[in-house]
Nucleic acid binder design. Structure first.
Lengths: 120, 120
DNA sequence: CAGTATCCTGTTGGATACTG
DNA sequence: CAGTATCCAACAGGATACTG
């Protein structure tokens, strides 16, 4: 992953952070894992409409590699794998929560803009 | 850009936000523009080591389209174009500042980890 | 100065099918 | 259940050269 994070080379801290959560589903995965308990692969899958197993696996592996998520395999049949947010992952909570709130507000604003368009 | 923001379709607010600042240099551009005054194209260029004019233009156009940055062309020779953060852009300040602080801390942590590696 | 115009490559992410 | 294995398309992003 040293070369995955090409952005860190010049060394702007903002880049470092944003690059780590860059990926089609990483933010949302973190968001769901921050909600409380740990989640199984299939539970995450259900919460992310449209993601393919391949992609979900990749995003989770990346997050694991970067230390934001831990992966626990239970030796059972059928297999059970649980994903849990780590301390390091938790430290990103303010960012994710801000993104949640801000995004919600923007969606409302966009909605409103559309509505007033229709009247005008 | 409606299709640039493919992530907004399912509608998770976290995705909406992160998608808007997704792009190799957008976060850093916002960061620099939040520093105070407006900046000219060449000034931004100097602050972003390695970016090509083409990319800088694209990132700025995206940010402009999304309402985070305003672009002012002064009718002079040689031309002077100034980029300034908008109100909407300002509303992202908490996120950018968090990313700055958090990224700085992580860089320090990584440094420390490397150092202890060399000792061990 | 502030960009365009071309061209090109690598990575990201999606579709589909299969397995321990 | 929790993934892999292949294959593939699209696009972001980089290199280079040129211009009003």
């Amino acid at each position: 992953m040293a070369d995955r994070h090409y952005r860190t080379i010049p060394g702007c801290p903002v880049e470092v952070t944003l690059d780590l959560i860059d990926g089609r589903w990483k933010g949302v995965v973190l968001h769901h894992l921050m909600a409380g308990q740990c989640l199984r692969f299939s539970e995450l899958h259900r919460r992310l409409p449209g993601i393919t197993p391949r992609l979900l696996t990749k995003q989770l592996r990346d997050l694991e590699t970067d230390g934001f998520v831990s992966r626990t395999v239970h030796a059972e049949v059928p297999p059970r794998v649980e994903y849990r947010i780590t301390e390091e992952g938790e430290s990103l909570r303010p960012l994710i929560e801000f993104a949640e709130t801000w995004g919600r507000a923007r969606m409302a604003r966009v909605q409103a803009a559309h509505a007033s368009q229709r009247v005008a």
